[in-house]
Nucleic acid binder design. Structure first.
Length: 267
DNA sequence: ATGGCTTCATAGTGAAGA
């Protein structure tokens, strides 16, 4: 199973990029964030034409998440039951026996903002909810735009970002709290290039100078961990005309193979 | 330089993103 996440920053604007990327990469599933469109506007037919089914939860202007997949999505749920929210940030579905949880974590705006408190409350609720979900669905993937750079090596200039959202200690603690549930950052299971990022500022030639952050992540439950064979960031779509500011991240999970007895994907 | 781009909702600019 090839499963990917991509914050597209408006699906209306980015649909051509998404269709091209699906054709080129043929993932089994792609999770989208910041679709920024109401459900009635979702490009269901275009994606169907490309061979993909879709489930989505959107709203005008902000937020919006979707899971598009080659196989039929089962047991689709929207949001978190323990955190009623107008903002459309969570959608989940089961694909080929794997529970897929697609999240668009709040940005937080600044550490002294109400939105930052909302972000931390949201992350606490996510952790509480996932505790139960992991018991129900031992094969679980949590992926999306986390709006957290977990470590300094995920930041192009850690000194410049001190005290900022996305890197603050409470946010990083919330990320580690997810890991403590037995969720593992698939990207770090493998050797990766130095200064690997998934987002670059549109301004000041952020991409060309590789002034970026790694804030989009694919976390895998213990049961899926031994079967993960790769996780990569695809910078290609970021080079196109009118790109999203995020790049897609994709993991490969060998579902048809039994887990090896001695499993250590990083060796 | 508290901006720089980009999108959306607007029909001027302003909010928000990260």
């Amino acid at each position: 199973m090839r499963i990917a996440t991509w914050n597209v920053n408006s699906l209306k604007v980015r649909l051509p990029h998404v269709l091209d990327w699906l054709a080129a990469n043929q993932p089994d599933a792609l999770c989208l964030q910041e679709t920024k469109q109401e459900d009635s506007q979702f490009p269901l037919a275009e994606l169907q034409q490309a061979g993909y089914q879709s489930v989505f939860s959107g709203q005008k202007t902000y937020n919006g998440v979707a899971i598009i997949s080659k196989t039929s999505p089962d047991d689709v749920t929207v949001g978190m039951p323990n955190f009623p929210d107008e903002q459309k940030r969570v959608i989940s579905a089961t694909l080929d026996g794997v529970r897929v949880v697609c999240v668009y974590v709040p940005n937080g705006q600044s550490v002294d903002s109400d939105k930052y408190q909302y972000k931390l409350s949201w992350l606490a609720a996510l952790r509480e909810w996932l505790k139960g979900e992991l018991l129900r669905y031992p094969k679980l993937v949590l992926l999306g735009d986390y709006n957290i750079a977990p470590e300094d090596r995920d930041v192009h200039d850690p000194k410049a970002w001190v005290g900022n959202i996305l890197v603050s200690e409470p946010e990083r603690a919330a990320f580690r709290a997810l890991e403590q549930l037995g969720l593992h950052d698939s990207f770090r299971l493998f050797e990766q290039p130095e200064k690997s990022f998934s987002w670059w500022d549109y301004r000041m030639m952020g991409f060309r100078r590789n002034h970026g952050l790694r804030i989009d992540h694919i976390l895998l439950s213990e049961m899926l961990l031994p079967n993960c064979t790769a996780c990569t960031i695809d910078r290609v779509p970021r080079k196109l005309e009118r790109p999203s500011d995020h790049a897609p991240v994709m993991a490969e999970i060998a579902l048809d193979q039994p887990a090896p007895l001695l499993s250590n994907p990083s060796s």
